[in-house]
Write a protein that binds this DNA or RNA. Structure first.
Lengths: 187, 187
DNA sequence: TGTACCTATATGCGAAATCCTATAAAAAGC
DNA sequence: GCTTTTTATAGGATTTCGCATATAGGTACA
């Protein structure tokens, strides 16, 4: 499963389950989600398979931290996944499915739906764009080419988020306009 | 769960599990996937809950077809879902997760990965754009406002797919260019 | 004529993944 | 002490995935 591979990817640098959850909230939110219980369980399983190593550290502010890093076998597993090429066909977009059937809702609800959608998409876009901006400004003249390999690829993915959310916001805007135009015509 | 609601949405018009599977392949592929077994089970469950009605028809070319339509309770359930507003946070994008960790792969593989990605995205875009084109051409002057409500909202969703895939193709192109530029710099 | 394969159609079963919710314990802040 | 934050874990319910099987009619071909 993909969560396994994602964890292996993250664990190039040591981190605890709790740390990883934070990263999911911040970095991965726009293309993946996982809850704490799921993460802990997956970590335990990967350790049992010898793909992760664990050490226990005292925490400054809570119970002992179990810090994981991937093993050579873990890196290999990750590489195999990447070598498969891009995996398609697993996309799940609940809000688009809803939009598809929106004819079933009352007219005011349809508008409210698209307004809420635009709102959320704009938030996402703003968040991502801010991170991107920040990153770009601290980079030199030949940014992003001067990043190290891992950062470079993270940056490309971030850029994708920026581009995609921008396109989506524009689409939601245009859709709202079309809905309004259509409603006016009816009266 | 969302598959249930999607089935209710589709079953405004009567269809068999097999028919629905076809629709998933054609229409929903870019934002949802479900396999046959899953669909049949969900249909059976919805019928048991009184949200769908079934009638059996002889088929021209196979076993009897079980054709479902949604009941009033089914429509109500669908409306409740839409009234919740857009559901976010369920997005799963395997290929982006892979892209994020691409530093782990060998340089040629990274390029191959992005080329395959661009390829697939272009395919998606071409498919969606063709459907859109077709639809638009058969529509009159005030297209899409002259569509009926259900078609109108399907069209908006389709348009979303066109816009999104276009943005993604552009992104993949730009990324490939960046990867190449970066590689040249190294030599 | 038969038989082998193809498509349409439906189902069963088990494994895996996901989600949700509750519990617990340790340190810090008030 | 009480609350909040950090950190980890358990258990069950629900959903999803993957594969195998069944059945009926059509088509191609030996």
């Amino acid at each position: 499963m993909s969560l396994d591979r994602i964890l292996l990817g993250i664990l190039r640098k040591p981190a605890s389950g709790y740390d990883i959850k934070q990263q999911f909230e911040k970095v991965f939110r726009h293309f993946w989600s996982a809850d704490l219980a799921q993460i802990y369980r997956a970590l335990a399983k990967l350790e049992k398979e010898g793909l992760l190593e664990r050490r226990t550290e005292p925490s400054a502010r809570g119970p002992d931290r179990k810090v994981y890093t991937r093993t050579a076998a873990g890196s290999e597993r990750l590489r195999e996944w990447l070598a498969e090429g891009p995996v398609f066909g697993t996309e799940k977009f609940t809000y688009l499915a809803q939009a598809f059937f929106l004819a079933e809702a009352a007219p005011e609800e349809r508008i409210a739906f698209y307004e809420a959608l635009r709102e959320r998409l704009m938030e996402q876009h703003a968040t991502l764009a801010a991170i991107e901006q920040n990153w770009r400004q601290s980079g030199g003249a030949d940014f992003p080419a001067n990043l190290d390999e891992a950062d470079f690829h993270s940056y490309l993915t971030l850029d994708m988020g920026v581009q995609k959310t921008r396109a989506l916001v524009e689409w939601a805007d245009a859709s709202l306009a079309r809905i309004h135009a259509r409603t006016r015509k009816r009266n």
